[in-house]
């Protein structure tokens, strides 16, 4: 390739013309190839089966365990519900903030019921930011089935409570009889049961503070006994979640207030 003098000059001309011609040949050949682009609104680009688009929720499977909410790195899932007896959830909101969501699918894998998925829908152009906060629930509140289940569960519980009471009574009577019989104290038995109660109480009392945040919860009027019951499992999760959970709760409250 080393040239000198006039040969450089001629060589440059030759190279320039030749390489231009080669390049033009390539572009010319491409003119007769089929375009590879899609005419967007008419031909929609096919998406793969694993495509990570807009989420969808199988609400009847969801147990409101908040695992997805916890897994999301940007806290864009917001779940508000009320747990009724019989693990029935009264749904208020399961919303996804697509302003923040980055479609990482991290929310989908930890779901124990495998009920939140990323779908094939894409194209999120909206006129308002608020329109990008999408509620994924298919129903809100309680369905007839749920009412039924709550009733059943309550009856069941009452029945159980009654049974328990009866048992206790019987046991107490027995104990009394035994105590009368023997001077040995049965304290060793009753002791633990008494200590267990206070232990569970603080857990129950913790969520007492966020309780009023759940709107309409009290108004709908499950008895106070019920609310205490229903808060229990939530309280347990609260503990696991730590400070992060607190944040989402706070936000939820604000947004709820705004609406």
């Amino acid at each position: 390739m080393k040239r000198d003098g006039a040969m450089v000059w001629l060589g440059n001309i030759k190279d320039a013309l030749w390489s231009t011609m080669v390049g033009m040949g390539i572009t010319f050949r491409h003119m007769f190839k089929k375009p590879v682009t899609y005419q967007y609104p008419e031909d929609v680009v096919p998406v793969a089966t694993r495509y990570r688009g807009m989420h969808f929720l199988e609400q009847d499977k969801c147990i409101a365990c908040r695992a997805c909410e916890k897994a999301c790195p940007v806290d864009c899932i917001e779940i508000r519900f009320l747990r009724h007896p019989g693990s029935v959830n009264e749904w208020f909101e399961f919303s996804l903030d697509y302003n923040k969501c980055m479609f990482c699918e991290l929310c989908c894998s930890p779901c124990p019921e495998d009920c939140i998925h990323e779908g094939k829908e894409f194209g999120f152009a909206r006129y308002e930011r608020s329109e990008l906060v999408v509620d994924l629930t298919t129903w809100k509140g309680l369905r007839d089935v749920d009412h039924q289940r709550i009733k059943e569960a309550e009856e069941e519980k009452k029945r159980k409570a009654a049974e328990m009471a009866a048992k206790k009574k019987a046991a107490a009577a027995k104990k009394a009889a035994e105590a009368k019989k023997t001077a040995e104290s049965p304290e060793a038995k009753s002791g633990p049961s008494e200590t267990a109660k206070p232990a569970s109480d603080p857990e129950g009392s913790k969520p007492q503070t966020p309780k009023p945040k759940i709107p309409k919860g009290d108004a709908k009027g499950p008895s106070s006994k019920k609310t205490a019951e229903e808060q229990k499992p939530q309280g347990n999760q609260n503990k696991g979640k730590g400070s992060e959970k607190g944040k989402t709760k706070g936000k939820g409250k604000k947004r709820g207030g705004g609406k």
């Binding site: 998406v47 793969a48 694993r50």
Partner: peptide, 15 residues
């Protein structure tokens, strides 16, 4: 990108 889309569902930010 469409290969990656088939693999993991995303086209740019794969995670």
């Amino acid at each position: 990108m469409s290969l990656f889309e088939k693999l993991c569902g995303a086209r740019l930010t794969y995670s």
